[in-house]
């Protein structure tokens, strides 16, 4: 893969932005983040997938390096198919990368680390054959959590997303939005320092999404968890993130990193601030080229009747 030129440039860009932001920071919270220990270290991670035909390979991630600090809220943004979910799954130990290393704290990731990392997926992963509360109990058993307080903790997690009255419902009796609230609550209930979220609000309508986003900002400001959050929504990324990482079209590399200086919890007023639209526009400008490229590649693939590697 001829990658040196673009690769250098993109990493340089990331570095400059990162350092510039760090220097400029004066308020307490962001300074804390800059000093905080590294919670997740992604080092030169590459991921190849076997294609449909033998010999045909898909390069999903190309030498991605990234450091995420404890307590940081990091958003991953990029065109569809650029490897965001793949990166998240590698960090969570659900996929084994082709090469490179991921560390959680000092430990190299070799499989799921349920005591460290919780997932919230795009679709509800509540088991439909158990009630909401039974789902929490089963999750706690999976984690081999010895705590006898699981019931109280489950109820307080449900309360924090306003779903305490639905503890004994089956998931299929709830709307998609309600289910996603509960999935979020379970992520919090699992009590891990890190939560990985893969487009958790993508299936929701705009309004619900905004409300849940606000709730999330409030919730997380309290807990100080480290979050990696994949989204397609620029507004969501700017509203939630301390730092936004933009990825290139496939093969996924890091194209740019933006910092958002705004203490959590963030109020909806932040969305009206000029700075909000400035950052969003900047993001859009960075993304536009990548999206064009993705669309062009898709057309090409369609015209050739194959999916390239």
């Amino acid at each position: 893969m001829p990658m040196s030129a673009t690769q250098q440039r993109s990493q340089g860009q990331q570095f400059n932005r990162g350092r510039g932001a760090g220097d400029a920071v004066m308020d307490g919270k962001s300074k804390l983040a800059a000093d905080a220990p590294v919670a997740i270290a992604v080092e030169h991670v590459t991921q190849r997938f076997d294609g449909r035909r033998p010999g045909q390979q898909v390069l999903a991630l190309d030498d991605v390096s990234l450091e995420i600090r404890a307590g940081e809220f990091l958003c991953l943004l990029g065109p569809s198919g650029c490897g965001k979910s793949t990166l998240l799954n590698i960090i969570g130990g659900l996929n084994r990368q082709t090469s490179g290393t991921v560390r959680i704290g000092d430990t190299v990731v070799r499989g799921p680390t349920p005591s460290q990392v919780a997932f919230v997926f795009q679709e509800s992963t509540l088991f439909p054959w158990y009630t909401v509360l039974e789902n929490f109990k089963v999750s706690s058993d999976f984690q081999r959590s010895q705590a006898s307080t699981w019931n109280d903790r489950a109820m307080s997690a449900l309360r924090s997303v306003g779903m305490e009255n639905f503890a004994n419902h089956y998931p299929n009796q709830l709307s998609i939005g309600m289910k996603q609230r509960i999935n979020l609550a379970r992520g919090i209930f699992l009590d891990t320092p890190i939560i990985l979220m893969d487009e958790p609000f993508a299936a929701l309508d705009e309004q619900t999404r905004m409300v849940l986003g606000e709730d999330l900002s409030v919730l997380l400001a309290r807990t100080g968890k480290t979050i990696v959050f994949v989204t397609h929504s620029l507004a969501e990324a700017v509203f939630l993130a301390d730092r936004i990482v933009v990825m290139t079209a496939r093969p996924g590399r890091i194209k740019a990193t933006l910092t958002v200086e705004e203490p959590h919890p963030r109020s909806p007023d932040f969305m009206l601030a000029p700075r909000f639209s400035e950052i969003r526009n900047e993001l859009f400008a960075i993304l536009r080229d990548e999206i064009r490229q993705t669309v062009a590649a898709m057309r090409e693939a369609r015209d050739e009747g194959v999916v390239d590697g």
Partner: peptide, 24 residues
């Protein structure tokens, strides 16, 4: 999806069978 979710939460093979495969 359910299998991955269970694995991410640390489910053992036996738990995976009892709590996911069998009820499903």
């Amino acid at each position: 999806l359910y299998i991955r979710a269970a694995q991410s939460m640390g489910a053992s093979q036996l738990q995976l069978f009892r709590r996911v495969y069998f009820p499903s």
